[in-house]
Simulated assay, not measured.
Amino acid sequence: MDPQYAALLAHAIVDTVRDPLLVLDCQLNVKTASRSFLREFQVEPEAVDGHPVYDILDGSLNVVGLVALLEKALADHTASKAVEIEKDFPRIGKRCLVVEVSEVFFAHNVHKAILVLFHDVTERRSIEREKQELLIETQNLLKEKHVLLLEMQHRISNSLQIIANILMIKTRATTSEEARKHLQDAYTRVMSVAEMQRHIDGAARAKTVSLPPYFKTICDSLVCSMVDDNRRVSLRYEFDDACAASTVAVSLGLIVTELVINSLKYAFPTNRPDAEIVVKYETSGDNWRLTVADNGVGRPGETPASSDGLGSTLVKALAQQVKAQIETKSDAHGLTVSLTHVTFTPRDD
């Protein structure tokens, strides 16, 4: 091939490269610069061609990492290496570049050239830094939230204990047997709520929580605090043996609490001997279903607006946290609320 034609062809190929590219000789002088290099760094060919690579761009490429890479390419004949540099370049400002260095041999290894390819990763690194800063800020907010929750739970526990102590003092001071009975009943209810609060608080502090005893404590505490001789409702539960991360367990515990309280408050406006609430937690691999069902009056005349109360909003928000879908079925035979995580295949009984 004609040497002049070969040189023109090589230069044309260099100009097709999208990323900025320099071709250096063995003395690390610039033999040619691609159009993309001239355009990216806003320089003319005469300011680059024939100059030592460390002198161009006002010496911006004379950095330790790149110098070491070029020297290694000359000495060790390495195939391809890269280094990341961040500099304030003339005319274009601060840039973060990944620089690749490759050695090219010609026929019979008589001649060789060094290729220096530049990848601009400024925007990518900026996004990564923003993500990292956002992650750190989020972690700090979560820590603050955790501290506030612990403080709130501590205050709630103390308040419940104070109320229980006052009720006990009043119980001892009263001379009326009927008043004493009511005060003892109130004391029992307050202590049940305190026990439920303690269990949820303990779940929040643990890494993983065994769900059956956790759910059982919550359900028993709710029955003890809300069911009495004037309103008899049986609560039955069926829990598969499973564990969950503390954040998931707390959300599930709050969901169970809210749904059971709603059933106790609204499902049975009149006393019924067969009044029953059933709480189930079923698992299938990594998937699960939580169901709270009652055989009460359902939600007669329900409209979309009527289902968006504080309790429903809370359950929806908690369901989103645990990545579960809510399904509600209401008819004359009662109300069933199911939360399903991903897909669920019921077991054959």
Rank of each mutant, 00 (worst) to 15 (best):
L135V: 10
A186R: 06
E327H: 14
L150A: 14
E44I: 05
I114D: 02
E178K: 15
L222R: 02
L24D: 08
R236S: 14
Q197P: 01
Q320N: 08
D308A: 14
K87H: 08
K94C: 02
N262P: 07
F118P: 02
T188G: 04
A317C: 01
L160C: 07
L149D: 12
G309C: 07
V256E: 11
K81C: 12
V64F: 12
I162P: 00
T283N: 10
D2P: 01
A324Y: 10
A206P: 00
Q42W: 08
Y187I: 10
G311K: 00
D76I: 01
L61V: 05
K265W: 02
A275V: 07
E302A: 15
I156P: 02
D25V: 15
A33Y: 11
M1P: 11
Y54D: 15
F239V: 06
L183C: 01
L28F: 03
V337Q: 11
I85W: 13
A317Q: 02
D76E: 15
S176R: 10
A68R: 15
T340L: 08
P269R: 04
A79W: 12
V98M: 11
A275F: 03
K145C: 12
P304K: 04
L115A: 13
L8F: 03
G309N: 13
N271S: 06
V53H: 02
I163Q: 09
T313Y: 00
G253H: 13
S312Y: 01
Q132A: 12
N271K: 03
V14E: 10
I163N: 07
D25N: 15
F215Q: 01
L167S: 02
N295M: 03
R299N: 07
Q321P: 03
A317F: 04
V147G: 05
L38I: 08
S263P: 03
S307V: 14
V278K: 13
A47D: 01
D286N: 13
G334A: 05
T175A: 05
H111D: 06
L252H: 00
N271R: 03
Q321G: 14
H111S: 07
E71A: 13
V260F: 01
C26P: 02
H154M: 14
T122V: 09
A204Y: 09
K316L: 12
S338L: 07
N271C: 04
L222N: 01
C224E: 13
T313V: 08
A164Q: 05
V110G: 01
V121E: 12
E258T: 09
S312K: 10
C219I: 15
S176W: 03
V209L: 06
L21W: 04
I92E: 11
E238L: 12
L66F: 04
L254N: 12
G59F: 06
F215T: 03
L314R: 05
V278Q: 14
K207P: 07
T283V: 14
L115G: 06
I127P: 00
K170D: 14
V248Y: 09
A194C: 00
L264Y: 11
T343Q: 05
N230W: 00
A249P: 02
A275S: 13
A113N: 10
P273K: 14
N140V: 03
L28T: 10
V337E: 09
I200A: 08
